[in-house]
Design a protein around this nucleic acid. Structure first.
Length: 716
DNA sequence: TAATCCTTTCTTTTT
DNA sequence: GAAAGGATTA
């Protein structure tokens, strides 16, 4: 029995055995793309006796890399946890960390995530007096990051900026780069572009990597942007033993610069061998046909003959609901019923935007069903976690302004904005680190800056930690840090969620402990670097065996599969998203996104759409997604809203009884009102802008924003 | 000058 | 219904 080759079909086997020379595997959804890479890796190890460290496999997420390592270990019975299975960004960090001086970068740089980039942009705009109402800072930051992703320098961009927005962005971009250098920081795009610089300018280093990796593989190749592709070319082995795997129908990262054309270029440039995987092993034929119907509408698309030998399966259920709340309730009810025959892990709920998860979470909690929300900004975006991480970043790199600003008065130590400005100004003028600046100039007369006791106290703490950071284990370091700034007392009393927040800090400590166990010699700086590259979809705990329902965006679902898939919010404006309506290429990407969602389903697929949803407390009417019509009726069964019948009777009666109001001041506690969605209810609380109503059929609801047009008051 | 309260604006997707 | 910025208070 050959565990590595026997489970594969002929095409997959061909891809695994074709180890020498460039290879492109174009593979439809569910045809075993990732399987080819893992089996190929194991095949190289076991059959070709290649040393593990001479093989590189590149993925996009840490989660994918981790899963790949696990599978390789199982297949090859060789521990692959230390193999070169990495994300683009962590590969970039590794190259940069090893050779920073060749491009004039310091060894102790920190990595800024997009949040940090945004806050730098905001500061620059403030400093330069650029109005943040005219140009919104996150928008400018996004623009700069995407320019950097395309390897466009500030100088180049300055020449071609036409709109006012771009002109402002060009100026800010220049400052932004200066700021990063001053702060000894690199951002996400730098993690690709700087390694490109290192490799293209240094023949020796390039030669080193080209001969280090004898075999290179790239997963999800359709998602590579031009910079990433360029980086691949730079470290591609001399033998051209490079295998890329992708599917143009699953290209959903165009907005981040991904270029599907890279697939064609790869064929031409490397004269690669092409292998097509067209047999789908995942979904029923109804699901597969429906998915195809959605994506075949894209003009200019190269049609694939994706086929399956599995049975036709259940029809696709379309759940129609009156409100988004009912949508969540019906989804969870449906899951509840199916749980007789399935485990929790067999279910996933997908949505277009992270904000949609909340209603589902509430409903699942109510039903006592275990779930896990992937992505979003969950853990590492929490205040308490970011606070601690910022302290660590600042201690490791005392030039890091973004982190300084975050922590300088957390916990409150009476150092406000005015003091902060002085410290920054002083550090800039004297060209010293922020820790040194906190001590100021002992004979401060010449600068006019005399530090307060509060500043000096903070300086002492940071300085001591800075000096001991190399001598302590990461966990001890963090414990001392938390102790010396009194963070526990601070966070416990921060708000009513204090205890939860402290538990998150403890969870952070645990994850550091785990990291320490896994990397015995690592220091705190190693942890912080790895953690910045973690995203919401990567999870910190190793809970492979756990059983829960998965909630995630469709983007996050790529590469995964579930027996039962619920795609929620299948309405115009979300799928396709309203921001894509004016561009046919973006609209096509939305189609492919829907395709990706559908093809995650193995056995059953549910598509739900609410007719109204609450947006900032006011009701928004929704129409079903136009993509729904592309799925042939014969594959669909519709389940109508359950409350429609009852509600419509009430809604009809309401016009005789109710009286429109124009302002919330006309409503008093105790009034009976009709809401056009929730029906009849009595007001239990009213304030200037909010009211709480107990509705007969939909429970207690808070109404806020411009709900007033949806309300009529009954005359008593 | 710092802390707090109140207003406004914003939600696409992520390494 | 948050999060951030501006206005107001201490």
């Amino acid at each position: 029995m050959d565990e590595i080759l026997d489970p594969l079909n002929e095409k997959q086997k061909e891809a695994v055995e074709h180890t020498e020379g460039p290879l492109l595997v174009l593979a439809g959804a569910g045809s075993g793309k990732t399987r080819v890479i893992t089996h190929r890796f194991a095949y190289l190890l076991k059959k070709k006796k290649i040393t593990m460290h001479n093989i590189l496999a590149v993925t996009f997420t840490n989660k994918a890399a981790g899963e790949m390592k696990d599978r390789i270990s199982v297949l090859s019975k060789i521990d692959a946890s230390r193999s070169w299975v990495r994300t683009f960004h962590s590969t970039g960090v590794m190259i940069l960390r090893k050779n920073p001086e060749t491009i004039g970068y310091p060894r102790d740089f920190v990595i800024y995530d997009s949040e940090d980039s945004k806050s730098i942009v905001k500061k620059i705009m403030k400093d330069r007096g650029i109005d943040s109402k005219t140009f919104n800072p996150p928008g400018i930051a996004d623009r700069i990051l995407s320019l950097k992703d395309s390897l466009i320098t500030p100088e180049e961009f300055k020449g071609r900026a036409v709109t006012d927005f771009d002109k402002a962005a060009a100026v800010i971009y220049q400052d932004y780069e200066i700021n990063l250098r001053k702060n000894k920081a690199v951002d996400f795009p730098d993690l690709i572009s700087l390694p490109i610089k290192i490799l293209s300018e240094n023949e020796k280093i390039r030669a080193y990597y080209k001969s280090l990796w004898h075999y290179v593989m790239v997963d999800e190749f359709q998602d590579t942007n031009n910079a990433q592709y360029q980086l691949i070319k730079l470290f591609c082995p001399l033998s051209n033993n490079i295998c890329v795997v992708g599917d143009d129908d699953q290209s959903i990262y165009g907005w981040r610069g991904a270029n599907v054309e890279n697939i064609n270029d790869f064929m031409d440039y490397y004269k690669a061998k092409l292998i097509l995987l067209e047999q789908n092993y995942r979904s029923t034929s109804i699901i597969l046909t429906a998915a195809h119907a959605v994506v075949e509408k894209i003009q200019g698309r190269i049609d694939k003959k994706l086929w399956t030998s599995s049975k036709s399966g259940e029809k696709i259920t379309v759940i129609n609901a009156l409100t988004d709340k009912e949508e969540a309730l019906r989804t969870v009810d449906t899951i509840d019923k199916l749980l007789e025959n399935y485990d929790f892990r067999d279910f996933a709920i997908f949505y277009r935007t992270n904000a949609q998860s909340r209603l589902f979470e509430e409903e699942l909690l109510f039903h006592n069903i275990p779930y896990k929300v992937f992505g979003g900004q969950k853990f590492y975006a929490r205040k308490e976690v970011k606070d601690i991480l910022s302290y660590i970043k600042l201690i490791i790199n005392p030039y890091d302004r973004a982190s300084l600003e975050r922590i300088i008065n957390v916990p409150k130590r009476k150092i406000g904005n005015a003091s902060l400005d002085k410290i920054i100004k002083y550090a800039g003028e004297k060209n010293v680190s922020f820790i040194e600046a906190l001590f100021g100039c002992e004979n401060g007369a010449e600068t006019g800056f005399v530090p307060t006791t509060a500043m000096k106290d903070l300086g002492i703490i940071l300085k001591e930690l800075n000096e001991s950071s190399g001598k302590m284990t990461p966990m001890n370091f963090v414990k001392v840090l938390i102790d010396s700034i009194g963070y526990k007392e601070y966070i416990l009393n921060f708000d009513e969620d204090g205890l939860d927040r402290w538990e998150n800090v403890e969870e952070l400590i645990n994850s550091i402990k785990e990291y320490e166990d896994f990397n015995p010699d690592a220091l705190i700086q190693d942890f912080i670097n790895d953690v910045t590259l973690q995203t919401g979809s990567d999870e910190l705990e190793s809970d492979n065996g756990r059983d829960y329902i998965s909630l995630m965006t469709i983007h996050n679902a790529k590469g995964l599969e579930f027996k039962n898939v619920f795609i929620s919010g299948v309405i115009a404006g979300l799928i396709p998203h309203s921001s894509s309506l004016y561009s046919s290429s973006e609209l096509n990407e939305e189609r492919r996104l829907f395709y990706v969602g559908i093809t995650r389903a193995m056995e059953r697929l549910f598509l739900s759409y609410p007719e109204t949803r609450l947006k900032y407390g006011s009701v928004e009417r929704c129409l079903p997604s136009p993509f729904l019509k592309d799925i042939p009726d014969e594959f669909i069964q519709v389940e109508e809203s359950y409350i429609r019948g009852r509600e419509s009777v009430r809604i009809q009666g309401r016009y005789e009884a109710g009286r429109a109001v124009s302002d919330i001041s006309e409503i008093k506690t105790g009034d009976i009102v009709y809401h056009r969605i929730f029906g009849r209810g009595s007001v239990i609380f009213v304030s200037k802008k909010l009211m709480t109503v107990k509705f007969d059929s939909s429970g207690v609801q808070n109404l806020m924003g411009n709900f007033i047009s949806s309300i009529e008051v009954m005359d008593r």
